[in-house]
C-alpha cells in the first residue's frame, strides 16, 4: 500500500494521517494480524465511515490510534500523525494529555460504557475537569449542563444526579456523547454508536451526531457494519476486509459506483436490494483467518471475478477518481472489463 490515497483533491488539510499501520495480537494460536498496513486520512470537519464485518479490524484501528489497545496487542509498523505531528512513539503520559482533548470516543453499548456506580452528571463533570482542572465549580456545572443540553438531554438539572440505569438506551448514548464532547475534541471516534439501540432511537442518535459535528466541526470516524447507518451520516467511506482497506471513496461513489467485488457482495446481500421472490445474494465462503492470512488478495477465494494474479500478489490501491480508490486487480487497465452487479438505488 502506498500513501497515495491519503491525499485526494479535497482542499481541507488532513487532521489525522495514518500510514501503513499494522497491528497484531499475540494469541495462543500465533500472531493474529488484525490490521495489515492501513493508510487513511481524516480531514477537518468530515465524517469518515469505516465499514466491514466483525473481525475485519475496524475497531482495532480506532483503538490503535488512541493507543487504547490491550497488552497483548502490538503496533508493528506504520505511523500516526496529527496535524502533521507524529504521535506514533508517544508514551502513555503524553497520550493522556491528548485523549479527550484531541480525540475522544463513543462506544457501542452505552449500558456498559458508563460506570454504573457514578451518577451521569458526575461522569460528565469528570470529563470536563480532566483538561481544565482550574475551572471553578460553578463554571464546570454550567458547562456540564450546557453539554447535556447540546446532546438533547432535556431538563438536565434534575437528570444530573441520576445513575446510568435510570436512563433509557438512547439517553445513555446521549450521555456518552456528552462525555466524549466535554473537552471539545477535534476528532470523535464512534465505534458502532447505534448498534445496541432500537431502530427508532438509532436515527435520532445519528442525526444528533451529524448535528453536533456540524455545530462544532468535529471530524468523525464512524465505525459501523450497517450500511444504512453509513449512508445516513458518512461523507466518505472506507471498506475494510481482513485487516485492510479495500475501497475508499465518497459515500456516493461507494454506494452508486462501487468497484471492489467485496463492496459489491456487501451491498448485494442486503435485503433492501433484493428482488422480491429471489433468494438473497450471499458471498460464498468465509473470511480468512488472520493468524496466517493468505497470500495475495485475501478476498480472492470468495471472489468469482478473481484473476490469477489475485492469488499471487496483493493489489495496490488503484485510483478511479481523485477521491475514489480500490484495491482490486480488476481496476488494472489490463484486466478484463466487468459490469458491476450493483450500484444505483435501493427499493423501499
Amino acid at each position: 500500500m502506498n500513501g497515495r490515497q491519503t491525499e485526494g483533491k479535497n482542499n481541507s488539510p488532513a487532521l489525522l494521517e495514518v500510514s501503513n499501520l499494522s497491528v497484531s495480537f499475540d494469541t495462543p494460536q500465533g500472531e493474529l494480524q488484525a490490521v495489515r498496513g492501513v493508510s487513511f486520512a481524516l480531514r477537518e470537519g468530515e465524517v469518515l465511515a469505516l465499514v466491514g464485518e466483525s473481525g475485519c479490524g475496524k475497531s482495532v484501528l480506532c483503538k490503535a490510534v488512541m493507543k487504547l489497545l490491550n497488552r497483548n496487542a502490538r503496533v508493528k509498523s506504520g505511523s500516526v500523525k496529527v496535524d502533521g505531528m507524529d504521535i506514533t512513539n508517544y508514551r502513555e503520559r503524553d497520550m493522556e494529555r491528548l485523549r479527550g482533548k484531541l480525540f475522544s470516543m463513543v462506544l457501542q453499548d452505552p449500558m456498559t460504557s458508563l460506570n454504573p456506580t457514578i451518577p451521569v452528571g458526575e461522569q460528565i463533570t469528570e470529563a470536563v475537569r480532566v483538561h481544565e482542572p482550574k475551572l471553578s465549580r460553578a463554571a464546570v456545572r454550567a458547562r456540564v449542563l450546557e453539554l447535556m443540553r447540546l446532546v438533547g438531554i432535556e431538563d438536565p438539572e434534575s437528570r444530573y444526579r441520576l445513575y446510568p440505569h435510570n436512563f433509557s438506551g438512547g439517553m445513555r448514548q446521549r450521555s456518552v456523547l456528552a462525555i466524549a464532547l466535554a473537552s471539545r475534541p477535534r476528532m470523535l471516534f464512534a465505534d458502532e454508536p447505534t448498534t445496541a439501540l432500537d431502530v427508532t432511537i438509532q436515527a435520532q442518535i445519528l442525526d444528533l451526531l451529524r448535528e453536533v459535528q456540524r455545530k462544532l466541526g468535529t471530524a468523525t470516524l464512524l465505525v459501523s457494519h450497517d450500511l444504512g447507518v453509513v449512508a445516513r451520516v458518512a461523507d466518505r467511506v472506507a471498506v475494510m476486509y481482513a485487516g485492510r482497506i479495500v475501497e475508499t471513496g465518497t459515500a456516493e461513489e461507494i454506494f452508486y459506483d462501487p468497484r471492489h467485488p467485496y463492496t459489491w457482495g456487501l451491498l448485494r446481500s442486503l435485503p433492501a436490494w433484493a428482488e422480491p421472490g429471489q433468494p438473497l445474494y450471499t458471498i460464498p465462503g468465509m473470511p480468512p483467518t488472520l493468524i496466517d492470512p493468505p497470500r495475495g488478495d485475501a478476498f480472492a477465494c470468495r471472489n468469482k471475478y478473481a484473476l490469477a494474479i489475485d492469488y499471487e500478489e496483493a493489489p495496490p490501491m488503484f485510483e478511479i477518481t481523485p477521491t475514489h480508490l480500490a484495491a482490486t486487480w480488476l481496476c488494472d487497465p489490463r484486466a478484463p472489463k466487468i459490469a458491476p452487479p450493483v450500484g444505483g438505488e435501493a427499493r423501499g
Binding site: V199, T200, Q202, A203, D226, L227, G228, V229, V230, A231, R232, A234, A251, E252, F255, L267, L270, A272, W273, E345, A346, G348
Partner: peptide, 15 residues
C-alpha cells in the same frame, strides 16, 4: 414510525 425508521443503504434517499 417504525417503518420510517428503517435505514436505507442509499445515501441520497437515506439523507
Amino acid at each position: 414510525a417504525l417503518l420510517s425508521a428503517i435505514p436505507i443503504p442509499d445515501p441520497r434517499r437515506e439523507r
